[in-house]
Amino acid sequence: MLPSALKPTMDSLDAVLRFFTNQKTKIGYGIMAIATIGGERIFSLLSFQCPCNVKQNMVYGLTYLLGPALVLFTVGLFLSTRLWRLYTGCCLNPRKLCPHRANCLSCATVLFNVAVGALVAPIMWLSIALLNGTFYECAVSGLEEKAIVDWFCKNRTSTCKDELAKVPCQTSNMSPSDTKELLLILHAQSQIIGWILIMSSALAALIGTCYKNCRSQVSYLQLTFWKVYKEKEKEKFEAYADEYATRLADRNLKSFFENKDVEAFPFPNHKAWEQISTIYTFKRGEQYYSTLQRYVENPNRDYTPEKMPLEMEHTLE
């Protein structure tokens, strides 16, 4: 039993832990933003060196601007549990993507939501990179489109068209004032595009959230409870999976090393795993919050245990 003097301290720690637990999504986005800013600064200061060549500026600048964004988008898809729940096994059974025609829209919605979620980090990268302006300046200065070059070099010396690509390195043969002015124009354009991207993303997020909540089939409090339940079910599933996997491994190793027949071990069958792995679609006539709850409350579910899970896995491969 804790001394009375320590109880206020423990209560305060519990309150802090609950706060961080409840705000972990926002904290995660904050950490992602800080990491993105740090990554952009590292690339700009240590790695990025604009070639200041009309043939290479565009490719080099766009590579640094769009390359990390594509990598972050790919990582976002890799880390999406919903994508893999929908995609796993669909090559062997394409109907898993859309088992019923009525569910095709739900599957498309899931894929859209996965893509939108994976776009958060790339948009952060692009916004920060454009606000900094280094990559954009290098890329745009290498454009060879006559109309764009004429616009930049309007009312300037004839050497401007040939020296525009050297502006980011400030090694052009133009006057220092013209070089500085062009550099400021490129920097301003980059920041304007960056702010447009930020404002467009924020507006799209607001409209999407409003539309999603407006179309919700449950009330706000029930939706809040649903989110909490899904998080708790995920945590408990991981804990149960770890416990049962440990027990199954212990049983198999004990049987192997002691050269004895294995003991009976309850294990869900393949059909059960398939059913709880599908993406859940809410229906007003059902008071379920996940595919797992719908499965366990189904009176006609199959209780037949999986006797040889490893052999089944080998057969599926």
Rank of each mutant, 00 (worst) to 15 (best):
Ala139Tyr: 06
Ser4Cys: 12
Leu126Thr: 00
Cys160Ile: 10
Trp151Val: 01
Lys227Leu: 08
Glu311Val: 10
Gln189Thr: 13
Thr109His: 01
Leu253Tyr: 12
Leu17Phe: 02
Pro122Met: 04
Leu77Asn: 05
Leu17Thr: 10
Phe135Asp: 09
Ser177Val: 15
Ser80Lys: 02
Tyr295Arg: 04
Asn103Pro: 04
Ile192Leu: 13
Ile198Thr: 05
Ser175Gly: 02
Tyr87Gly: 02
Thr109Met: 06
Leu164Gln: 12
Ser175Asn: 15
Tyr136Ile: 00
Gly285Gln: 10
Lys236His: 12
Pro266Asn: 06
Trp151Tyr: 13
Leu248His: 03
Leu79Cys: 14
Gln189Glu: 15
Leu126Phe: 07
Gln287His: 08
Leu143Asp: 14
Trp84Val: 03
Ile196Ser: 08
Lys230Cys: 10
Pro305Val: 01
Glu274Tyr: 04
Phe112Arg: 15
Arg294Gly: 07
Leu66Glu: 00
Trp125Thr: 05
Lys254Glu: 08
Glu258Val: 13
Cys90Val: 06
Val75Lys: 06
Thr209Leu: 09
Lys283Asp: 09
Met58Ser: 03
Arg95Cys: 05
Met124Leu: 15
Thr21Lys: 02
Lys154Glu: 13
Ala272Pro: 01
Glu263Thr: 04
Pro168Asp: 04
Ala108Met: 07
Thr81Leu: 08
Thr171Trp: 00
Ile276Val: 12
Pro8Trp: 14
Pro68Val: 06
Glu163Gln: 14
Trp226Tyr: 01
Pro99Tyr: 04
Ala115Asn: 00
Arg41Pro: 09
Asn173Gln: 15
Tyr303Asp: 13
Val116Phe: 12
Lys24Asn: 12
Ile37Ala: 11
Ala241Tyr: 07
Tyr303Glu: 09
Glu297Leu: 13
Val296Trp: 02
Leu126Glu: 10
Ser141Thr: 04
Ala118Tyr: 00
Thr179Trp: 00
Ser47Leu: 12
Val218Ile: 07
Glu181Gly: 03
Tyr229Gly: 01
Ser172Ile: 07
Val71Pro: 00
Cys210Ile: 12
Met174Ile: 07
Leu130Ile: 02
Val116Lys: 14
Ile207Phe: 04
Asn173Gly: 11
Lys55Asp: 14
Gly39Phe: 11
Lys161Ser: 06
Lys234Asp: 02
Val167Lys: 08
Asn259Leu: 11
Tyr87Glu: 05
Pro122Tyr: 04
Trp195Thr: 05
Cys214Phe: 06
Ala33Phe: 15
Gly117Arg: 14
Thr281Tyr: 06
Ser172Met: 13
Arg294Asn: 12
Lys227His: 11
Phe282Thr: 00
Pro3Gly: 10
Cys90Asn: 07
Ala188Leu: 09
Phe78Gln: 11
Gln170Ala: 13
Cys169Arg: 02
Ile27Gly: 06
Glu317Phe: 14
Ile128Glu: 07
Gly28Ser: 12
Asp242His: 14
Met124Phe: 13
Gln170Asp: 14
Leu221Tyr: 03
Gly39Val: 01
Gly38Ile: 03
Met199Leu: 15
Asn57Leu: 03
Lys166Met: 13
Ile276Asp: 03
Ala118Met: 13
Phe20Asp: 06
